[in-house]
């Protein structure tokens, strides 16, 4: 019995998203940027969230921290974080404490994530004081270690203002801020996008090392299939605010089931192995109109669409033990 309980705890998801809906109020109407998302983030794994720009990845991860900015609003759902509770309903002070300490986020605009009028070192101290860190000198030491690992001159960086650092350096500083309070769940939203290929590879390598060392639960948001292939244990594919496919990355990448995932995989020369055979995805990414249509959001661009796909929306169904797909073509076998 107790062994069973232990096993259950060990495999309990680090983050459990249920029925999440987020809308942005725009002048053309409400845009449902995240729609009816159910998602389990497995503890101690690297989960890649992939999709074209505008598919709702950033909104999803911001909603996990209950930090969706105006004009966005979380309409419904729950985000159960292991050891914290439902981020969407616990009181504000506990939410604040969880941010940074339990959930570390490097968000997409990490290059501009620093107060331009304060030295980086001071901002580290501000963070420590906000989270009641007793030993602030130790915190600075940790900051230095992380910065050094990320390939920077730590003392110089801590004494610098944001404008004295390059875009890539700022992004690494953003990563340092997400890790410094030893958050167990770390979310990197396009955290390496501003870096050149070489430093991107080295930063990802460090992320992978830290992930292993600290037993982290890592969420990597990216639009680069190559990054997912290199790093992720699991992959979550988003389109038009919905999760269209998810599963272990090796299987999803080698045998993509959803036509959208297939398109993404075909578009990556590194995966198809041959640049000439890389086929870019046809058509434009989902926009407000697509969001509001009753059918499958991918219908317009889908090479294998059926009449049914225009009328109703496919729900996400398990096709094997740990793999889910939202596509009539895949799930309507019988």
């Amino acid at each position: 019995m107790s062994a069973e309980l232990k096993h259950k705890q060990a495999t309990a998801p680090a983050v459990q998203v249920r029925g999440l809906n987020v809308v942005y109020a725009t002048n053309q109407g409400d845009l449902p940027a995240v729609r009816q998302v159910d998602l389990d983030i497995e503890a101690r794994k690297i989960t890649g969230i992939i999709g074209e720009s505008g598919s709702g990845k950033s909104t999803l991860v911001m909603a996990m921290m209950n930090a969706v900015g105006k004009p966005g609003q979380i309409v419904s759902g729950s985000v159960e974080v292991l050891g914290v509770g439902d981020m969407l309903s616990i009181d504000r002070e506990r939410q604040r404490k969880a941010r940074g300490k339990e959930l570390g986020l490097v968000f997409q605009a990490a290059q501009n994530s620093l107060n331009p009028l304060r030295r980086i070192g001071h901002q580290v101290l501000d963070l420590g004081r906000s989270h009641d860190v007793k030993d602030l000198r130790d915190l600075l030491r940790k900051a230095k270690d992380l910065l050094t690992r990320l390939g920077m001159d730590a003392d110089r960086v801590l004494a610098s203002y944001q404008h004295e650092l390059s875009g890539g350096m700022r992004q690494r500083v953003g990563i340092m801020f997400a890790l410094i309070l030893d958050a167990k769940i770390v979310i990197l939203d396009e955290a390496t996008t501003a870096l050149d290929m070489l430093s991107q590879a080295s930063v990802l390598e460090i992320v992978r090392e830290l992930h292993k060392e600290r037993g982290l639960t890592t969420i990597l948001v990216t639009h680069d299939m190559g990054v997912v292939a290199d790093m992720a244990d699991r992959v979550v594919v988003m389109y038009g605010g919905e999760i269209v496919e998810e599963g272990p990355s090796e299987f999803v990448l080698s045998h993509p089931a959803h036509p959208y995932t297939q398109g993404l995989v075909r578009a990556i020369p590194r995966i198809s192995g041959d640049i000439d055979r890389a086929v870019p995805l046809q058509g434009a990414p989902a926009d407000l109109k697509t969001y509001l249509e009753p059918g499958c959001p991918f219908y317009q661009r889908c090479p294998v669409a059926m009449p049914k796909c225009q009328e109703s929306r496919p729900t996400s169904l398990a096709v094997s033990q740990d793999r889910k797909v939202a596509c009539f073509k895949v799930t309507d076998h019988d």
Partner: peptide, 13 residues
Amino acid sequence: DDFILASEVRGLK
């Protein structure tokens, strides 16, 4: 500004 959102996401007081 982005850094204000960032300060919220980092749980600053």
